[in-house]
Design a protein around this nucleic acid. Structure first.
Length: 462
RNA sequence: GCACGGGUGGCAGAGUAGCUAUGCAACGGACUGCAGAUCCGUGGACCCGGGUGCAAAUCCCGGCCCGUGCUCCA
């Protein structure tokens, strides 16, 4: 069984082959912390969390780097309006991000480099590009000159230089930037009055948006690394700019082995994004949804496909999640073996994950196991597959604590429930259905669900 | 407009030529006073039009539709 990964650049699923046997270097574009993260971000980092987990489960040693773009125009806009330092805004939103990710069982990356802590490396890289003739100094900053490496254009989007030239109209003049060609992009932006800035050979300023990722990946991994992830919208210009910067700087290509891009979260068929304003922050979603149920929902569609968030979609996921938790709890407290052979499910699960991380297919296997067996072996199976690999389970301690709490809650109302149930059974025996239903309603108002079975009624709290 | 991705049953989602995908939902039956749970079973799809094959959801051509990108964006 081999792991196949879809690569945006070559547009095919390829067997994963890494630079160093048994090791994977993975870089994922992180957030720009100018506002609280929304569900689109959740989907991205959840997707790559599963990539991270599955690679490790497959025996790879993974080095995972995710950046924070902690200085940028929008952060400055907000810090201006709040009259606080930009770092206040950035730190606040980074904390928010890490908190909600923790709540959704997202494992931490190994490094979270920040732009503001990578300035010397960025400056070195820009200097190298300038020396090699790929960068020039304009009125308001330093730019990468696309025409010095035109053959690198369009690797991730298939666009040609001409197309983009044609599409842009007279934007160069509009922006008043110091670019020679509108397809060139900023490496270093000179500071305007009052903006935070860092010293550089070109004057005080700050890095352009794309250069940080090139500098950070070079810094952590060297000239080449295995996987680069990010949202689908980053393919152009951001990731193509990275290819220009990294490969022109080092002369080594390709800089990235596999470009992975996750699909969007849509609301009413449209991309959820901050600029469109049609987003839910992750925290808002937590108000109505268990973080792990949300994780379940967002992983229940393969990472490259779009997800249309509808109430039905979220409900279905919540139902499955609930079943999983209940089944896990039941198996966890069982001393018996299920007597089932779970090897087929394991094989199909592995095949699904090996096929470009098809979490959907993998989760169907989990559903099948959940609905067909229970026992101590099932608990172990779920821990490995639903827990370690997909991160869908709370810790067994939490589950056990939850069960204990449920037990005590149950014990609290038990006497009252039993006496009502006894009364109801008498009513049922005398076919006094209206009285029986009345009692059931009364129990329901106490949060007690009654289920009549062949061996009499059973009840549980909900 | 151009580029990329995609259009499979109510929803999600496999399937790159021949054999029931699958899950949820729906429906029918069993069981039920009813409800619920459970069990058994059923129907239902390949955007349109051409083409190549003995055979096409699957390959080719032409349309149409949707999403994203071309501007900050996961």
């Amino acid at each position: 069984m081999t792991l196949r990964v879809y690569d945006t650049r070559t547009r095919e699923k390829r067997e994963l082959s890494t630079l160093e046997e048994g090791k994977v270097s993975m870089y994922v574009c992180g957030i720009t912390p100018y506002s609280p993260s929304h569900l689109g971000h959740a989907r991205c980092y959840l997707s790559f969390d599963v990539v991270h987990r599955w690679l490790e489960a497959s025996g790879y040693e993974v080095e995972y780097v995710q950046n924070f773009t902690d200085i940028d125009d929008k952060i400055l806009d907000i810090s201006d309006s709040e009259e606080v330092d930009f770092s206040v805004v950035a730190n606040r939103n980074i904390d928010d991000y890490l908190e909600v990710m923790d709540a959704m069982n997202v494992l931490r990356a190994d490094y979270y480099p920040r732009v503001t802590e990578t300035i010397p490396e960025i400056i070195d890289m820009i200097s190298a590009l300038q020396e090699k003739g790929h960068a020039y100094v304009g009125d308001d900053g330093v730019y990468f000159e696309i025409d010095t490496a035109p053959e690198k254009f369009g690797q991730l989007t298939g666009q040609t230089l001409e197309m983009v030239r044609a599409g842009a109209g007279g934007r160069v003049a509009d922006t008043g930037s110091g670019k020679r060609d509108h397809r060139d992009f900023a490496l270093w932006k000179l500071a305007k009055q009052g903006e935070p800035s860092w010293e550089s050979p070109w004057g005080k300023g700050r890095p352009g948006w794309h250069i940080e990722c090139s500098a950070m990946s070079l810094n952590h991994f060297g000239e080449q690394f295995d996987i680069h992830g990010g949202g689908h919208d980053l393919r152009f210009p951001h990731h193509e700019a990275e290819i220009f910067q990294s490969e022109c700087c080092t002369g080594t290509e390709p800089v990235v082995g596999y470009w992975m891009h996750n699909g969007f979260v849509n609301l009413d068929g449209e991309k959820m994004s901050k600029s469109l304003g049609n987003f839910w922050t992750i925290r808002e979603a937590f108000e109505n949804h268990d973080p792990l149920a949300l994780r379940y929902a967002l992983l229940s569609v393969p990472y490259r496909n779009p997800i249309d968030l509808t109430p039905e979609f979220l409900e279905e996921a919540a139902t499955h999640f609930e079943r999983l938790i209940v089944a896990y709890g039941k198996s966890l407290t069982s001393n018996d073996h299920s007597g089932s052979d779970l090897s087929g499910a394991s094989e199909r699960f592995t095949a699904a994950m090996d096929d470009d991380f098809n979490t959907r297919a993998a989760m169907i296997e989990i559903q099948a196991v959940v609905s067909s067996s229970s026992g101590s072996d099932v608990a172990a199976w779920l821990e490995r597959h639903a827990g370690e690999v997909l991160g869908l389970l709370p810790s067994s301690e939490e589950i056990v604590a939850g069960l204990a709490q449920a037990d005590s809650a149950r014990a609290e109302v038990s006497d009252r429930v039993e006496s009502l149930l006894g009364e109801r059974e008498i009513s049922r025996e005398t076919k006094d259905w209206s009285r029986a239903d009345e009692i059931r309603d009364e129990l329901a108002s106490m949060g007690v669900v009654v289920e009549d079975g062949p061996e009499g009624p059973t009840w549980h709290l909900e």
